[in-house]
Design a protein around this nucleic acid. Structure first.
Lengths: 206, 206, 206, 206
DNA sequence: TATGAATGAGCCTTCATTCAT
DNA sequence: GATGAATGAAGGCTCATTCAT
């Protein structure tokens, strides 16, 4: 649905390079973290002057927030995409789980964490996190509801709560991954998560 | 178990107030976040001079890291404590889950998030996160292993992976809680989590 | 009399809008003050691009100085005009005083103050202030000299000093007016100033 | 009266040097003007670090405003002082006029102009200018009222208006003085001003 | 003629840190 | 043990200016 990105306040300045530079911002941000991303850092990597960044984005905060929006937007879109490939409920759910466990560049997951953290301390980002989470949950919820309606799934609890738990599980797995904890193994976890999910949905083991 | 706190070389100066002030640091830190906690902020709340803080803790980073250690230490201890109250595996697991879902002051959970985030960008903290996570996982792992040995639980996957998933689920639930997302409801989630857990462990529904 | 305005080397580029824009510069300048008038401010009000202003006027200083010249020029012309309407000395003086106390838009008076202030710190403007002041004083001096020659006025001091005092009085009244001090009342002041003037010139009260 | 200077908001920091430095600020300010007085300029002259100035005064604006207050305060006090030396009305008025025409360091007069100019664009300073002007006018008004009561002066207009005119005259003379206009001669002007004043007050020529 | 893109210089401000008391 | 004075380093921001179109 409406992937029509950010209705940002500025964004009527800058030439073609602006878009490229924004991607650089995302990279640097995921690398250094919100609070440690200086104009200088981005400027150096992007090969533009600091004042050019300000010309493009306004303030440092505006720049970082736009990068945060941009990248989270992209992730949600990626997930929605993943879900749309499969027509039937269970394979669709599996695809969604795989989307949440995919071996993407580590920066992707760090960015997520940056977003959560930044949102804790910034009301505007927190508000965005609400709408973002809604969109993030929707594909899961729809797949489960479809499965229930088609008699394929049998859920004892409220679907929303199941989604909350499922998403929390995927989000929670981001943490050991980003912190590079040894015990984390995406492939083995995938098995566990899916087994757990089958149990919750009353789907027979394969 | 060795609660050998703070393995650091940090000094041990300052009078009795030092301990009180450290608690203030924790509060301010959970409130403002690592990067936004200035000496001034703490000084104001604690009612001491900035130079006093430096006298107590050394540098700003030393102060914050000590606060991070202090509070995470406390949380792990709390969990170990919770597990020790119950003698049999399943009630012990339930107690541990309840420990992870407890309606503690929101600052407790924010602190956890601060820790994760800070650890991403600080090697020393990352190292600490490894040992901390080990201790955090242990009570869960032990309870499950006990249950398996006693024939009470039947686990299809590696126990460590089950623990990873379980802890990830609890950690992942910290996020909507801290971000104050509406759909989050600890009580209902508790039911879902426990049902999920029973399914994984082959424990009959109550 | 030579109204040889703007003795500057400043360029003469730009279309018909240039003149209109110059008036905008005057307005903005009187509103915001010399030091706080940015290209951006003028551009916004004039509805043109910043680079257009630079195209018209050159540098920021050039623009502002030209505006200062333009507006002071206009004021002096207004005064000369006022003096020329009346043929006999005393009515002419009265007209000049009225010109100095006229209820013009407040911007007019603020501009005067801007000019004084700017001239203090800019040698070129200071030089201009000298020639400007000369022309400003002249109508007063001529009227008084005429009155003396015609035996209508009797002056004990040097006429130039009388003019200095008279102009200082009018200029000094600009200050409470611009600062919007309550005690300032142009009508009542007019009576006082004229009485004072009659006393100095030995003119009988009406 | 109540020369109990500024009830400033900060001012509880800084050692003994603070007072000395404040005088430096006044000097630099009168020399360079409000808008062109940088921290750097003051720091260089005062021989302290920029951050020391900020430690003393807070922001650049706070520093300059305090300097403005400080110096205008001093001037008003000087005038009140001058008036208090003479017991009888006319000599007292003469002393006040002399105070307004005194050959003080040019910085004193430039400062006055800075103050007027700054007050035009800063509401807080404008408010201060009101109270300051009140105190500035008072000695003049009291001397005149005393003279009237003692039958020494005979005033046709409202005393306040006479004061307005007199102060305006003195203020207006600051302009050519600061702009260093050639025709300005304090001694000769003094004669004119006093003659004018005598005429207004019905005092016989000496 | 008129303008948007891009940039560099200059300055304020924040903040941790050092030092003397 | 505890604190105030003083400072240097670093970064964000404003703004005029240059350049290509």
């Amino acid at each position: 649905m409406s992937s029509t990105s950010v209705p940002s306040r500025r964004r009527r300045v800058g030439g073609a390079r602006r878009a490229e530079v924004l991607d650089v911002v995302v990279d640097v941000l995921s690398e250094r973290g919100y609070e440690h991303t200086r104009f200088t850092d981005v400027a150096k990597v992007a090969g533009v002057a600091v004042s050019t960044l300000q010309f493009y984005f306004g303030s440092r905060d505006d720049m970082l927030v736009e990068a945060l929006h941009h990248s989270t937007e992209r992730e949600v879109a990626r997930l929605e995409q993943a879900g749309n490939q499969e027509p039937t409920p269970w394979p669709r759910l599996v695809a969604l789980v795989d989307g949440g466990l995919a071996p993407l560049p580590i920066g992707t997951w760090r960015m997520l964490m940056e977003f959560w953290h930044a949102a804790v301390h910034d009301p505007e980002l927190r508000a965005h996190s609400v709408s973002l989470q809604e969109r993030y949950r929707r594909p899961f919820a729809e797949a489960i509801r479809d499965g229930v309606e088609q008699g394929e799934f049998h859920v004892a609890d409220d679907v929303e709560d199941v989604v909350t738990a499922l998403v929390a599980l995927l989000d929670g797995l981001v943490i050991p991954r980003v912190l590079d904890h040894e015990y984390f193994d995406a492939d083995r976890l995938r098995v566990v998560v899916l087994r757990q999910l089958r149990a919750l949905l009353g789907v027979a083991d394969p």
